[in-house]
Amino acid sequence: MKSAVIVFPGSNCDRDLAVAFEAAAGAKPVMVWHRDTELPDDIDLIGVPGGFSYGDYLRSGAMAARSPVMQAVAQAADRGVFVLGICNGFQVLTESGLLPGALLRNAGGHFVCRDVALTVDNAQSAFTSRYAAGETISYPVAHHDGNYFADDATLDRLEGEGRVALRYAENVNGSARNIAGILNDRGNVLGMMPHPERVIEAAHGATDGKRLFDGLVEGLMARA
């Protein structure tokens, strides 16, 4: 299984995400710089990490979404390659149109940095297969712009098609319908604000995120 992690100027969770990919897959991901126009051949999984790409200039994720490498990511996603965007990575995926909606400034105006309870809404996806539907888990969040917004028709469609993967169990940032993570229509792209890569080993104090990476990699290896 081959994976890659995209690195933008201002990414700061890229190495954590690489560690999580390696722990699950047993092989180091390729780190791909934002100016690169091509991804490695036969790639199975792409991580778009958290951070403050391009200093959050213009809008969070806006500049990164227009960087050369994101065209390659979009083409790969079109071919069915799996893409996981976390935090700023989720913002980049909405800005690039790979996922619907947008992430607005938190409704409370504050940067929120703490563990939050989440409900697994869809446990059928490749990303959530090791969780039970309706299960409550806990991941940390650390963001200022995590207030998920989409029009009602889009929200209804996401819910109707089972594309809400994760919801906050409380109102963390004002997100519409408490949405914390959504899938694209094919189910190969997941964007989420919480950080599963920060809870994968005992030393982190919790391991709820480990099952996301293990389940995803297991599914990808079975496919190959």
């Binding site: 400034r105 938190n106 409704a107 105006g109 207030n147």
Partner: peptide, 8 residues
């Protein structure tokens, strides 16, 4: 669209 900055 909520504008927390405007509100502040």
């Amino acid at each position: 669209v909520l504008d927390p900055q405007g509100r502040a």
